[in-house]
Design a protein around this nucleic acid. Sequence first.
DNA 1: ATGGTTGCAAGGCAA
Length: 157
Amino acid sequence: MTTIATFNVNGVNGRLPVLLKWLGETAYDIVCLQELKTSDEKFPAEAIRDAGYGAIWHGQKSYNGVAILARGKQPLERRRGLPGDSDDSHSRYIEAEVDGLVIGCIYLPNGNPAPGPKFDYKLGWFQRVISYAQTLLKEDTVLSGVFRRGIRTPFQG
DNA sequence: ATGGTTGCAAGGCAA
């Protein structure tokens, strides 16, 4: 059985000791990380490799950022970024194949405040991920992340 | 909720 988990780390370097401890204790086969908050160059690939995980990542300085980890394996990257908007600069999607399974790691926009451009971006991103999922689901696919519905004020989750 | 916290990065933004 393949086990899969998702973890919104809110800063992969700041959370690194917790992440490494968690990886060691849980030993999931596949892990999706969201909100890396780091550039590609500063992604802690060595520490994660030492913990026994191959990784691919789509970083962004200070904000967003997603990664896919596979225990004892190297995820094969298939795509970074959702199709449908070449102007989208947010690192919110990365996709890999692990053992014949397609893994999509998603970090959805918060969208606050609404109404406004950030909420419009969220709605557009939702449409794009829904549309792209129709294509993805022709294969064995897991989309992993945290979906939020509607508008939330900060700190309410 | 006219507040509250956290990470990044070095002031303010995003969540």
